[in-house]
């Protein structure tokens, strides 16, 4: 490809920032879930603090993309690439917020809460991490086959969340004194389930980038 090398380099840099944000988001999710299972309030507070770093990175991506739109007046694939960069960055930032919310739940539960955290949250996390990897790989390689796989993984997470929620509701009937703790677990499950939705959104963005058409993988 010839011409506009500088612009090409700036687009490449933007992509690298997004990949960096995705890696950090994934680490935040893993760390947040660990704090829940290990009842580690100190670590949970660190996850919350670190979220600011991810917010700043999202803002940096936004600013760079907007400057490129203003200065380069992109069209066609270039324009879609920048629009998609803005959308993906936003989805990653929202995922990181959900990880932060899991850490907040861990703080609400407190140390030595003595409750067994529902095992499905750990399983959902594993799939959510796999989805983030898949989403970013599909973005890097502009691979719509990988993007499509996200939809079926999202269905798995959704089903696990529904099952877990039903079980937690049953537990509220038998252990009404633990309702606050059960609610925090339900919230945490919901946050991980939302992370799956955002990863699926990235799959949609990749399909838009490659094909130029908007598709809904969440339904």
């Amino acid at each position: 490809m010839v011409g506009r090398e500088a612009f090409q380099g700036e687009l490449q840099h933007l992509e690298e920032l997004i990949i960096e944000l995705a890696k950090k988001t994934k680490e935040q999710l893993k760390a947040a879930i660990d704090t829940l299972y290990e009842a580690d309030v100190l670590q949970a507070e660190q996850v919350i603090q670190k979220d600011k770093e991810l917010d700043d990175l999202d803002m940096k991506i936004n600013e760079e993309a907007i400057v490129l739109i203003a200065r380069q007046q992109p069209v066609a694939t270039d324009l879609r690439r920048l629009v998609v960069a803005l959308r993906i960055s936003n989805d990653l930032e929202r995922m990181a917020d959900n990880a932060k919310n899991v850490a907040k739940s861990a703080i609400h539960l407190g140390e030595n809460h003595g409750i067994q955290v529902h095992p499905s949250i750990q399983e959902m996390k594993k799939i959510a991490v796999e989805m983030i990897d898949l989403a970013i790989l599909s973005y890097e390689n502009e691979d719509i086959t990988l993007a499509r796989k996200l939809a079926s993984l999202d269905d798995v997470v959704d089903n696990m969340y529904s099952t877990m929620l039903r079980e937690l509701l049953e537990e509220t009937a038998t252990n009404p004194q633990k309702i606050q703790h059960i609610m925090q677990m339900a919230f945490s499950g919901r946050y991980v389930e939302r992370i799956g939705d955002h990863a699926t959104n990235i799959g949609e963005d990749v399909m838009y980038l490659v094909k130029g058409e908007s598709l809904d993988l969440n339904n």
């Binding site: 490809m1 010839v2 011409g3 506009r4 612009f7 992109p74 069209v75 066609a76 694939t77 270039d78 324009l79 879609r80 130029g212 058409e213």
Partner: peptide, 18 residues
Amino acid sequence: LFSNPKDKRTEDYITGRF
């Protein structure tokens, strides 16, 4: 044409690749 051109040559021209 400006958001999703069908021909690679159109894409290359409008994005300034040639």
